[in-house]
Simulated assay, not measured.
Amino acid sequence: MNKNLYLLRHAKASEKLTDQQDFDRTLDSQGLQNATRMGINLLNKKVQIDIIITSPAVRALSTASLVAEQIKYDTNRIHQNQELYEASTRSLLQVVNQLKDEWNTVLLVGHNPAHTYLAEYLTKSEIGNITTCGLAHIVFKNLGWNEISEGTGQLKSYEYPDLLNF
């Protein structure tokens, strides 16, 4: 059975206010719209997500929740993982390697540069920069999550809101 990993960078966030922590930044109006559109895009493609795992940062959790609502995924089932906030490629890979094998399609919502680095590491593709609300879809053929490593995946698609036709 193939494994499908969707790496979604959080949608556009508001600028950090003077006394505000980076962790607490919220989505701006464009970010709210784009996260909703990306969810509609997944719904239109009939993508069935087994689990959504997100950074607990406000902007990432909000993005995950908006996408979940569009694809009819129970927002109470969104798993927050602190390791996705300020993650390194290595720590993201550890999260992927520890996924349950009964999950065939996983959506990880987090931050750059780690999401871009992980996508490029797993696929040996050059993405350059996953934009805000950009979504990389990586397919792993006949591998368990614990077997995924450098170059084992194929970049099936990379999309972002400006590419969507609705």
Rank of each mutant, 00 (worst) to 15 (best):
T89H: 09
Q94F: 12
Q70K: 13
T54G: 05
V96F: 11
R77E: 09
I148Q: 11
K72H: 15
E102T: 09
I71W: 00
K100W: 11
Q82R: 07
T131A: 13
L164E: 15
E69S: 01
T152N: 12
A35H: 06
K12R: 12
L42K: 01
Y117C: 12
L163H: 04
Q154N: 03
I51F: 01
K124Q: 15
L43F: 13
N76L: 13
E83H: 07
Q98L: 15
Q20M: 12
V139C: 04
S14W: 04
S65H: 08
D101A: 07
C133Q: 02
H10Y: 07
V139Q: 09
Y6N: 03
A57Q: 02
E15H: 13
S29W: 06
Q154M: 07
G144R: 14
T123K: 07
G110A: 04
I40E: 15
Q82H: 10
T26P: 10
E126Y: 14
P56R: 04
I127N: 11
G144C: 12
V95Y: 02
D19L: 15
I52C: 06
L8A: 07
T54N: 06
S29Q: 05
I40P: 08
G153F: 04
R37C: 14
F140C: 06
I138G: 10
L107R: 00
L93W: 11
G110M: 03
Q70N: 13
S157G: 00
T18Y: 14
W145P: 09
Q33F: 06
V139N: 07
N104R: 14
H10P: 04
T18D: 15
Q20W: 03
D19Y: 14
L32A: 01
K72F: 10
Y117W: 13
Q20H: 08
T89G: 13
I71P: 06
S65V: 01
E159P: 00
L108I: 15
K3W: 07
L99P: 01
Y6V: 02
S62R: 09
D162W: 05
I148A: 11
T63A: 07
D22G: 00
M38I: 10
Y117V: 13
P113L: 00
A35Y: 00
H111Q: 04
N76W: 06
E15M: 13
V47G: 08
T26F: 12
L155S: 06
Y85L: 02
Q48F: 10
A64I: 08
Y6G: 05
T116Q: 08
K12M: 03
K124P: 03
T152Q: 12
L7Y: 01
K3V: 05
L32M: 11
N142V: 11
T123P: 01
I130E: 02
L7R: 02
T36C: 09
R25M: 06
D24L: 12
N142P: 11
K124T: 12
D24C: 10
A119K: 10
Y73S: 06
A11Q: 04
Y160W: 11
E126P: 08
G31H: 03
A68Y: 03
A13V: 08
K45H: 14
D74H: 05
